[in-house]
Simulated scan of single mutants.
Amino acid sequence: MQNFSSQEKYLIANTLNCWPVMLQGHSVLIDLRNETSVAGIIDVADGHMTCELSNVVFIDRNGGQHPFDNFVVRNRMIRQIHIPTDIDVEQELRQAMERGVLRRRRVDGGNTKRTFKQKRAEVRHKETLAMITQQRSDKEQPKE
């Protein structure tokens, strides 16, 4: 288990920065901002979305493929992470939301009220889940 800083824990629990952490051990395709891509297995990811991958194939702009044993992708270079089709996105997000900072209660008996940021993050998580559910139901409905 990795040791995350308090800022990383907050980002993982309250933003979509949780995806690289949840995808550790899975094979993914990451599109980079410079029009290149990296395909490999995420070994380590932090709360800022910096990813260390193994068994990597780097795909350049011209479609050339270059194999690497290890590759590090900095968070600011990530444009998009393609989530594998065998992962249920809705279920994973629900689990991440349930175990996140939004549900945490202080052990020391301090103030247990949620802050405005926590409330707003929970609302945004719920909106994202509703959008995913709506898109899924639209795909499943037969077209006329």
Rank of each mutant, 00 (worst) to 15 (best):
Q2H: 11
N3E: 12
Q7G: 07
K9Y: 07
I12S: 03
A13N: 06
T15M: 04
L16K: 05
V21T: 00
M22V: 11
M22D: 09
L23N: 00
Q24N: 08
Q24F: 08
H26V: 00
S27T: 14
R33C: 13
N34L: 10
E35Y: 10
V38S: 01
A39E: 15
A45D: 04
A45I: 01
G47T: 01
L53K: 01
L53P: 03
L53I: 02
L53E: 02
N55F: 08
N55M: 06
V56Q: 02
V56W: 01
V57G: 01
V57M: 07
F58W: 00
F58E: 03
D60A: 06
D60M: 01
D60P: 05
G63P: 02
G64I: 12
H66Q: 10
P67T: 02
F68A: 05
F68C: 04
N70H: 15
N70G: 15
N70C: 14
F71D: 04
R74N: 08
N75I: 03
R76H: 13
I78L: 01
Q80T: 03
I81W: 03
I81C: 00
H82P: 05
H82D: 09
H82R: 09
I83C: 00
P84L: 02
T85P: 07
D86G: 06
Q91S: 05
L93R: 04
L93A: 01
R94T: 09
Q95W: 13
R99D: 06
R106H: 14
R106K: 15
V107K: 08
T112N: 14
R114V: 11
F116M: 14
K117I: 15
R120M: 14
R120P: 10
A121Y: 07
A121P: 07
E122D: 14
E122I: 04
V123W: 14
R124D: 12
R124P: 10
T128H: 12
Q134K: 10
Q135H: 09
R136G: 07
S137Q: 09
D138L: 15
K139M: 12
P142V: 05
K143H: 15
